[in-house]
Amino acid sequence: MGCKCCKKNKNSEELTDVERAIEIVINNFHCYAVKGRKEGLTPGELKDLVGQRLPHLAKGAVCLDEKIECLGDADEAKLQFGEYWDIMGDAAKGCRGQKK
């Protein structure tokens, strides 16, 4: 996949870890939102993203796949950034659970 997730901003060295983290999450969204209108991810694209980019966290958040399946038709539905962010939140909660 010819994606440029790791491309660096001119001023990325000045960014804090949190800012860099947010940037990475955003870049991943745009990396995978390639079908049709690019402002949204299809559930299929999201599933690929979770499988390929979250190999460890996806294990912690058991119901991630089921949640994605509930989001609509794998190739038709378009998920906005907010919905993608919610799924990332579930993954984050999974990783908080693992830490205990």
């Binding site: 997730c5 870890d17 983290a21 990475i24 991943n28 980019r53 979250l54 966290l57 908080r96």
Partner: peptide, 21 residues
């Protein structure tokens, strides 16, 4: 698309950073 199983991916690092924060 090739995933290193041992290291966390970049996106995982990002999520963990936000959780740690």
């Amino acid at each position: 698309g090739q995933v290193m199983i041992t290291d966390p991916s970049e996106l995982e690092w990002a999520i963990q950073t936000l959780v740690k924060n």
